[in-house]
């Protein structure tokens, strides 16, 4: 048995034999991955390995080609014999609202204020009343320490502040899982800390997260599970301690050593 064992409950998210190619060029060959309640799963691996593609397929920003994705027991896509099925658009939208994504380049709505950014999904997707949405937005902004900037526009914020607002925007959806794609990669070194610290607070509060990152300090301080991804496969999964251990395969160790800088 593996020194690391995953929690035994049914996973929040489970991905099996996921495949995806761009213009005939296979990017994801067969990806298996599951995320359990309260787990902080970090997805690491060399550039071009397909990490972002995995996240984008999970919430259907890209359409997978084959395989199965189950979110809270609901099949988002599956294979029946050789036929690949995708859940109806409505079901995908409902699933996305429960696993919002935080992007490397923040992607805040530039024509809306900070608080409007955090209210937007609540009003348009969850159909919450404006007052309720505002109240919840204020709570979420307070959690990421951005309440005092509620009336600012995104272009008046620093990168770290934008990313914290983006996290609040995801939080406002009352998500079951938050997907992060390199949340600290576009930040100046001095601003990485504030975003990491917000993410650590979320993990302490039991938020389930799937994080693609190159930031090994974040991995060490936050991850409960690490998945090493290369060549369109998950090559290894385990606890951070195990993956960082000297005995792990050469490829991962080399990657870790390089990423530590």
């Amino acid at each position: 048995m593996n020194a690391f064992s995953a929690p035994s409950s049914t996973p929040v998210l489970s991905v099996r034999q996921l495949r995806k190619s761009y213009a005939g060029n296979p990017v994801l060959k067969s990806v298996d991955l599951s995320v359990h309640q309260g787990e902080i799963a970090c997805l690491i691996g060399p550039s071009g390995a397909g990490k972002s593609t995995i996240l984008r397929c999970i919430n259907f920003l890209e359409k997978p080609e084959a395989g199965e994705i189950t979110f809270f027991g609901e099949r988002l896509c599956s294979e029946d014999g050789n036929v690949f099925h995708t859940a109806p658009e409505r079901a995908l939208q409902a699933a996305r609202a429960r696993m919002p994504m935080v992007f490397q380049h923040f992607n805040l709505f530039s024509h809306r204020t900070v608080i409007e950014n955090v209210m937007e999904g609540q009003i348009v997707v969850l159909r919450r009343h404006k007052d309720e949405a505002r109240e919840r937005a204020r709570t979420c902004l307070a959690r990421v320490g951005m309440l005092d900037r509620a009336e600012f526009y995104p272009d008046q914020l620093s990168g770290g502040q934008k990313q914290r607002v983006a996290i609040a925007r995801a939080l406002a959806m009352s998500p079951a899982l938050i997907l992060f794609d390199e949340p600290t990669s576009a930040l100046d070194p001095g601003l990485v800390q504030e975003v990491q610290s917000v993410m650590r607070d979320l993990s302490a509060e039991g938020m389930t997260m799937l994080i693609v990152t190159h930031d090994m300090r974040l991995v060490k301080s936050i991850a409960t599970t690490v998945h090493f991804c290369a060549d369109g496969h998950i090559l290894e999964s385990g606890s951070p301690a195990l993956l960082l251990h000297k005995t792990n395969p050469g490829r991962i160790r080399t990657f870790m050593a390089a990423a530590a800088h």
Partner: peptide
């Protein structure tokens, strides 16, 4: 900005929204 469109989609908005 395609990033902002992606953000809107990832919040669960319909294409019309």
């Amino acid at each position: 900005d395609p990033g902002q469109k992606a953000a809107a989609i990832s919040l669960g908005m319909s294409p019309v929204a």
